[in-house]
């Protein structure tokens, strides 16, 4: 077909510098990475970008580096690589990546795109929250790092400025067990009805959490984190690695549930989301704590 009908401008930078320059010159240009969110919006006619900024030829975005003891995960790294390359350093993120879509989506979809969409249901977000990750944002004006908990400002809204791009996320490698669990009404290829991530940080005597799909933004269950960290410390459990009292697990679940403010929608009711959050919080804590305890036993035996 000859006719193009005011098709959007299409910018194809081949370096990060160029990409930032294009974004500065054309703040209306919408970045496209894997396209697995954006093209759905376009196909459904919910969005008509005046210009597109293709990020797939920017090599810097596809890199995984180690910077200051943290993993720097390029915004263009697809889920498939998170699974194969980062399973031991970022186990929570890798677990979340395994639950994303289908093999096709995991080959195309990226962490940058997940953050860029800023959906409350994005599966990267809970493990990044639990791990205390930072998002690296860049523009020709410079680079800034934002804790992921401060990145989201509302449903599908973030602190990203019109001239900025997401460069990477910085995540400390796991020092303790991490878990991610996601509820969907079918056993694969499903958007989270509710998701929960948990990370134990034994060296900091701290517990990290992330809640997905149960509030206007992904969020931490801060009160539950503090409660659990405090109780574990008070009972000397971090070092004794003794079993968790049932009441502690239950109360943790209740506090995670209380941290949510879900809605009723086609995917599930608010009540259901609250209910399952408590269950997932209890289960993931139990699994993570069991793993924590057996790590100790293993090192104890080999020492």
């Amino acid at each position: 077909m000859g006719m193009t009908l005011d098709a959007p401008d299409f910018h194809v930078p081949t370096s990060w510098e160029q990409a930032l320059a294009v974004k500065a010159a054309h703040p209306e240009a919408v970045p496209v990475a894997g396209g697995t969110d954006l093209m759905v919006e376009v196909n459904f006619d919910r969005r008509r970008p005046p210009a597109l900024l293709d990020l797939t030829r920017v090599p810097e975005l596809a890199a995984v580096d180690r910077v200051d003891g943290r993993v720097r995960l390029g915004a263009g790294v697809p889920y498939a690589r998170m699974i194969t390359e980062l399973g031991s350093e970022l186990p929570g993120l890798a677990m979340a990546a395994r639950t994303v879509g289908s093999p096709q989506i995991r080959n195309r979809g990226t962490a940058g795109g997940n953050l860029g969409s800023a959906s409350p249901a994005g599966d990267c977000h809970p493990p990044l929250l639990a791990a205390g990750a930072e998002v690296e944002l860049a523009s020709v004006r410079g680079v800034r790092r934002v804790p992921v908990a401060e990145f989201f400002t509302g449903p599908k809204r973030s602190v990203l400025e019109p001239d900025e791009l997401i460069a990477a996320v910085h995540v400390a490698p796991a020092t303790g067990p991490q878990q991610f669990a996601k509820i969907g009404p079918r056993n694969a290829m499903v958007i989270a009805v509710t998701a929960f991530a948990l990370a134990l940080h034994p060296e900091q005597r701290r517990v990290g959490t992330g809640i997905g799909s149960a509030a206007p933004t992904p969020r931490r269950a801060t009160d539950a984190e503090e409660f659990l960290s405090g109780e574990l410390a008070a009972a000397g459990l971090w070092s004794s690695r003794g079993p968790l009292p049932e009441s502690l697990v239950t109360e943790f679940g209740n506090r995670v549930r209380a941290a949510a403010s879900p809605i009723d929608d086609v995917r599930g009711s608010a009540d259901y989301r609250r209910h399952v959050l408590a269950v997932l919080a209890r289960r993931t804590l139990t699994w993570a704590w069991d793993a924590h305890r057996s790590t100790e036993q293993r090192t104890g035996r080999t020492a």
Partner: peptide, 8 residues
């Protein structure tokens, strides 16, 4: 729950 890792 499948790959969702919701129960062991």
């Amino acid at each position: 729950g499948g790959v969702g890792n919701t129960t062991h």
